[in-house]
């Protein structure tokens, strides 16, 4: 794998994760539990899709084959997507969405917090800009974890269950492959091992404050970074890519 290949792959990992989880959040539009949350969740979705656009645009430039952000978003099939598996998991009820978001946001924040030091100018600038948004995402999902965990019996149950379910996808945040190795050596990528203890500590604290129980099953479901996805991504792409695929000659 060349450094260019690695860099391209790394862009996809970052961009696809934001795009897919942002897309999932957008499914809530008009169906949120209360108007204020509709607005808040659309905001997060908007930020993430916006971030995805800028990384995918950069990915296209790195690749050098003239592919645009839209070519990459709309004309790649499942096996070529590099997002974390957690991002493609279904929304479920608002509790499940919040748990998924909390686990992702807390990682995302710590990740970008390191990426600001990247020797790649695009990444450092991108991280700095995105961080300003992601800090709000993390505050929002953390606040709801506390409210739901330490709210009513029902709400407690409605976050504990998805927490147990989704926990298996969190190991992937820190899974290192060939891409990381190449890019860490030249100061471009984040050393995931460095942020792992910080993430564990933050998540443990919030889970405790929320009177929830840390899942004990540490089995790690991996694959997203290599393009081996869960069954859900195919359906997301079928819906998302429908128009550009059905009308290949059209621009929108």
């Amino acid at each position: 794998m060349t450094e260019q290949d690695a860099l391209f792959d790394y862009c996809l990992r970052i961009g696809d994760s934001s795009l897919i989880i942002g897309h999932r959040l957008s499914e809530w539009c008009g169906h949120g539990p209360i108007l204020e949350e509709d607005i808040a969740i659309i905001n997060v979705s908007l930020d993430l899709v916006g971030q995805a656009r800028s990384v995918l645009d950069y990915a296209g430039k790195i690749e050098g084959k003239g592919r645009s952000e839209d070519d990459l978003a709309y004309l790649r099939d499942v096996a070529f997507y590099r997002n974390h598996l957690i991002c493609e998991q279904p929304n479920g009820d608002y509790g499940r969405t919040i748990v998924r978001q909390f686990l992702f946001d807390s990682f995302h924040y710590l990740f970008l917090n390191e990426l600001v030091n990247s020797k790649d100018d695009f990444f450092s600038g991108y991280a700095e800009k995105s961080l300003k948004e992601v800090i709000y995402h993390m505050q929002h999902s953390t606040k709801w974890m506390l409210r739901m965990g330490d709210g009513t019996e029902e709400s407690h149950r409605r976050v504990q269950e998805p927490l147990n379910d989704l926990w298996r996808f969190t190991g992937e945040f820190f899974a290192v492959n060939e891409v990381d190795k190449i890019l860490i050596s030249n100061g471009i990528a984040v050393d995931l091992n460095k942020i792992k203890p910080k993430w564990k500590q933050y998540v443990r604290e919030i889970i405790e404050d929320a009177t929830l129980t840390l899942p004990t099953n540490d089995w790690e479901q991996l694959g997203g970074k290599e393009g081996r996805h869960t069954e859900h991504l195919g359906f997301i792409l079928a819906e998302m890519q429908f128009l550009p695929r059905a009308y290949p000659d059209a621009t929108w």
Binding site: C29, G30, D38, I39, S45, R53, L56, D70, A73, M240
Partner: peptide, 28 residues
């Protein structure tokens, strides 16, 4: 909202999301 997940470009997707968010704000 029916078309947000099927918006044919990322630019259009963001614009539609922002529009629908504005409508929620109007309601509020």
């Amino acid at each position: 909202g029916n078309w947000i997940t099927r918006a044919p470009s990322l630019r259009r997707k963001v614009a539609l999301l922002a529009k629908v968010q504005d409508e929620a704000g109007h309601g509020l």
